[in-house]
């Protein structure tokens, strides 16, 4: 059954459909939150996210856009917890940085990527998590992060460059 059909059934008031949605998206939402926060806060924030989803679901007008909507809520909850860190990251973004439309490259295996993520700044970390770990499109990432598509691409490029630097540095040491 598609997410869209489950959302429609849940919006009609069918609790089994809502339970199926929670079951299907519980781990992906938690994974995103966990990459952005420590373990203790990740559990609390994940619960907040699902509470907001349940309260907001009747007002969702486009059931086919459930996944970006879900991660937008998750991002808002994470942003609330990391407000200071996000503000600092926005200040550090270089103005006028160009959006380079590089093809997505297979940069590393999943475990290595997850380990390296924790050392990235918050803005770069979140687009990497959404794009690579949650397999969302650039358009969806842009909607979730509330930035233009070009900004998502430039953040992805910057994040890949930072990751490459990390791995090169580690390669020299080993």
């Amino acid at each position: 059954m598609t997410d869209e059909l489950l959302v429609v059934r849940a919006q009609l008031g069918e609790q089994a459909a809502l339970a199926e949605l929670v079951d299907r998206w519980r781990v992906p939402v938690w994974s995103y939150v966990r990459r952005m926060l420590d373990a203790q806060r990740a559990d609390d924030v994940t619960q907040e996210v699902w509470l907001a989803v349940v309260r907001g679901l009747p007002r969702l007008r486009a059931p086919d856009r459930f996944v970006p909507w879900l991660f937008t809520i998750a991002r808002h909850s994470v942003t609330d917890r990391l407000r200071a860190e996000y503000a600092r990251a926005h200040e550090q973004v270089a103005p006028g940085e160009s959006a380079v439309d590089d093809p997505v490259e297979a940069i590393a295996d999943r475990a290595e990527l997850i380990a390296a993520l924790t050392r990235l700044p918050v803005l770069e970390r979140e687009v990497l998590v959404l794009f690579y770990l949650e397999d969302l499109s650039v358009d969806d990432c842009a909607q979730i992060c509330d930035v233009p598509v070009g900004t998502v691409k430039s953040r992805l490029n910057r994040a890949r460059r930072m990751l490459r630097e990390q791995w090169e540095e580690r390669g020299y040491r080993s």
């Binding site: 938690w30 966990r34 997850i114």
Partner: peptide, 11 residues
């Protein structure tokens, strides 16, 4: 962080 699971089950 790898191999971690959410503390709360679906139920």
């Amino acid at each position: 962080m790898n191999g971690e699971e959410p503390r709360l089950s679906t139920q």
